[in-house]
Amino acid sequence: MVEEILRVEGISKSFGAIKALSDVSLILHKGELLAIIGDNGAGKSTLLKIIAGVYSPDSGKIFLEKKEVKFKSPMDARKAGIEMVFQDFMLCPDLNVTQNVFLGREIVSGEFLNYKLMKKILKEKLKDLKFDIPSIEKKVRFLSGGQQQMVAILRTLMFDPKVLLLDEPTANLSAGASEQVMNFVKQLIKTKMIGGIYVAHDLNAIIRYSDRILVMRSGRIIAEKMPEETNPVELVRLMRL
């Protein structure tokens, strides 16, 4: 059996009178891409944001590699090895690729930024990942949507993450770019033995790329399906039941 990398136990979260999550538990294994589906308001985004340290849960525990972790901020989660990719890329269009990739974790010598070293590390990483970016000194605003999302993913990979959270990573991309991004992510998760959680609306893509599917409704996980034994019709029925 493959080792677990992330375990979530009994997470609940309310926003005022609205109960966003009630008693949610899940296990994520190394090298696994877990998909979470559900209608709008089912709680998938909230769950992802709790794991990423954006919100703190009202109750429940998170274990990373079997050790309990508590995140006060996204920075804590990033330090622990949990990285998130957003649908709107979350890049700074006016900074270049290198600056974006290292944003929040720049390499400094003394008080000054060491761009030389950052570029060197980035180039090695690109070679290692067989990653294709036109120029690492180009401002991100001059890149295409697919290239921008690749930069955002690249940013999460710079410091060898343990868990990758993907919040609708292809929602703003063309079909071709989506395929490129998802193939890359899938291959990466397998080769680096990272755990991945993937939230999306495109059920065909989910069946195609994920290893396991969790269905959420009204803040609870109500079903677990294997992609090879389900189809979009069944998934929609589960989501809307």
Binding site: S73, M75, I107, S109
Partner: peptide
């Protein structure tokens, strides 16, 4: 690697 986390 000399990469401070900030937040001190």
């Amino acid at each position: 690697m000399n990469s401070k986390g900030g937040g001190t």
